[in-house]
Amino acid sequence: MQIFVKTLTGKTITLEVEPSDTIENVKAKIQDKEGIPPDQQRLIFNGKQLEDGRTLSDYNIQKDSTLHLVLR
């Protein structure tokens, strides 16, 4: 499925993911596309910070959902 990740600069990254993917996996995909190390990434969905060990389906993230990427 496709999800979107919006950065603070207003750029939107499109990712191909599975609901069973962990947040860690998603961060690795963002690193592949953008070169941002996962330990600098914080992903936010519906105002909640997403934890590495959880999956997209844990957070009820579905296709065409938009996550927000904050760098630390």
Rank of each mutant, 00 (worst) to 15 (best):
M1T: 02
Q2N: 14
I3E: 00
I3N: 00
I3L: 05
I3W: 00
I3H: 00
F4Q: 07
V5K: 00
V5P: 00
V5D: 00
K6R: 14
K6S: 08
K6A: 08
T7S: 06
T7L: 07
T7W: 04
T9E: 10
T9P: 14
G10S: 04
G10T: 04
G10A: 09
K11L: 07
K11E: 08
K11D: 14
T12F: 11
T12V: 11
T12K: 06
I13Y: 08
I13A: 03
T14K: 07
T14S: 09
T14Q: 08
T14L: 12
L15N: 00
E16L: 11
E16S: 14
E16M: 15
V17A: 14
V17R: 01
E18P: 13
E18H: 06
P19G: 12
P19W: 07
S20W: 05
S20K: 15
S20P: 04
D21N: 14
D21G: 07
D21T: 05
T22N: 12
T22D: 05
T22K: 12
T22S: 03
T22G: 12
T22F: 04
I23M: 02
I23F: 10
N25Y: 11
N25K: 14
N25M: 07
N25S: 10
N25P: 03
N25I: 10
V26E: 00
V26F: 07
K27F: 06
K27A: 02
K27M: 10
K27P: 00
K29W: 06
K29I: 12
I30H: 00
Q31N: 14
Q31M: 06
Q31W: 09
Q31H: 12
D32Y: 04
D32H: 08
D32V: 10
D32S: 04
D32K: 03
K33R: 06
E34G: 07
G35E: 03
G35L: 06
G35F: 09
G35K: 09
I36M: 14
P37S: 14
P37L: 15
P37H: 10
P37F: 13
P37A: 15
P38D: 11
P38L: 04
P38N: 15
D39Q: 15
D39Y: 15
D39T: 15
D39S: 11
Q40K: 11
Q40A: 11
Q40F: 11
Q41Y: 02
Q41R: 02
Q41P: 02
R42W: 15
R42K: 12
R42I: 15
R42Y: 15
R42N: 06
L43V: 03
L43H: 01
L43I: 13
I44V: 13
F45H: 10
F45K: 03
N46R: 09
N46T: 12
K48H: 13
K48Y: 12
Q49W: 02
Q49P: 12
L50P: 01
L50Y: 01
L50H: 00
E51M: 05
D52P: 05
G53V: 13
G53F: 10
G53L: 13
R54K: 06
R54M: 11
R54V: 09
R54I: 12
R54F: 14
R54N: 11
R54W: 13
R54Y: 15
T55R: 13
L56W: 01
L56T: 07
S57K: 11
S57P: 08
D58A: 05
Y59A: 06
Y59H: 11
Y59D: 02
N60Y: 08
N60R: 09
I61R: 00
I61K: 00
I61E: 00
I61L: 02
I61G: 00
Q62M: 11
Q62D: 09
K63G: 04
K63R: 09
K63D: 05
D64Q: 05
D64F: 09
S65N: 04
S65G: 04
T66I: 12
T66Y: 05
L67M: 08
L67P: 01
L67Q: 01
H68V: 02
L69V: 03
L69I: 06
V70T: 05
V70I: 15
V70S: 04
V70H: 06
L71R: 11
L71D: 11
L71N: 15
R72E: 08
R72D: 13
R72A: 14
R72P: 07
